[in-house]
Design a protein around this nucleic acid. Sequence first.
DNA 1: TTGAAGTTCTACGTGATGTAGAAAATTGCT
DNA 2: AGCAATTTTCTACATCACGTAGAACTTCAA
Lengths: 123, 123
Amino acid sequence: MATLGDLERAVMDLLWEHPEAITANTLRDLLSQRTSDAGLDSRPLAVTTVLTVLSRLEKKGLVERERSSRPHRYRSVTSRAEHTAELMLEVLGSAPDREAVLARFIGTVSDGEADTLRKLLGR
Amino acid sequence: MATLGDLERAVMDLLWEHPEAITANTLRDLLSQRTSDAGLDSRPLAVTTVLTVLSRLEKKGLVERERSSRPHRYRSVTSRAEHTAELMLEVLGSAPDREAVLARFIGTVSDGEADTLRKLLGR
DNA sequence: TTGAAGTTCTACGTGATGTAGAAAATTGCT
DNA sequence: AGCAATTTTCTACATCACGTAGAACTTCAA
């Protein structure tokens, strides 16, 4: 599966919030900002760290980079919603008890979401 | 998350297929059988290996053991369907785009499953 | 009481991830 | 062109999860 580590996840979250492709340095700044906003302040990550993570995410097919512009710019390949939906499907898998799983699943979503689902399922 | 390794997954699959609690030895046999059925035949796992995995699964809260009976007996705490549904919810998370995720998700299930979902959602 | 069966402890190899320095490549500027 | 600053790639190490199992300890039946 394409399971993500904490830092990878943090990076993806930022990329998902930024429709435009951004540079590793910008990402590093955003990450620093995020951690400082969260109270804890620690030394910001080295840019190489961010670059390593981005390479790995690229290898996993989650990130795309523009090698044309010199400070390479990165962007997520899919939206967070798409990604999450894919993950859910992966978890659901092709088991013979898919319907049983769906039944349990449905039983847990909020009323509002159940409404949304009805609409989505149409008639 | 409660993500499982290959062996852990194999063990859980067997426990899920067996409503009654079973011993580590039985599990080892079932695992051997399964691998040999799958063509490849390799030396069966040591019982300690199975026990280690079971301990880890117990720590993760997926397995429960009866320490009363001497060869301890193990059983899954939840059904596979429950477990999978929980995982799906975990993946879905509490993001602000839950509905967007659900939309994508719904768009991917089969027609038959969509039917099932409609029924489950009632009205 | 003792040996067999079962359980716990300890341990090692591997791969994923966080982390980053060293080295190589690329650019802008003079 | 030549060099210094910027950026990217390589290499590396620590940690943790997991597969795997031997060694040691515990328990029970005979």
